[in-house]
């Protein structure tokens, strides 16, 4: 029972970070700042949700199949953990090379 509670708490926390990432994507003024929201929020949201799923899967006993499935989920989480910052970095560099000007505070007070 306590395992299920922890798993549900992890999934809900992951969903919360997905919500903030999406809201940040909609609200921030330029694409560098949107990158902050999308790159970080999605990484942590996916990590927490997948960890919660792996924990929930182990709840029904430790058969070989259950352990294999949990390992698969953890490998997907590891891949996202490595790949997402790299993709973020690639897009930011594309913006820098294209010399997109970053949004600054002074411009906003027009």
């Amino acid at each position: 029972m306590i395992v299920i509670t922890i798993a549900v708490a992890l999934i809900v926390a992951g969903t919360f970070f997905f919500v903030t990432a999406t809201l940040g994507l909609l609200r921030f003024p330029d694409f560098y700042t949107r990158m902050h929201a999308a790159g970080k929020g999605d990484t942590l949201g996916a990590l927490l949700s997948l960890a919660g799923l792996a924990l929930y899967n182990l709840n029904n006993g430790f058969s070989v199949e259950a352990i294999l499935i949990s390992m698969k989920i953890l490998i997907i989480a590891l891949f996202i953990f490595i790949a997402n910052p790299t993709a973020t970095h690639a897009i930011t560099k594309a913006g820098l090379v294209c010399s997109v000007k970053p949004w600054e505070k002074k411009e906003s007070s027009k």
Partner: peptide, 19 residues
């Protein structure tokens, strides 16, 4: 993430980005 979440949820958006 908590830092970014608080920035996103605050109405005035107190950010000052720079490189």
């Amino acid at each position: 993430n908590i830092h970014v979440a608080s920035l996103v949820l605050s109405p005035g958006m107190p950010i000052d980005p720079k490189i």
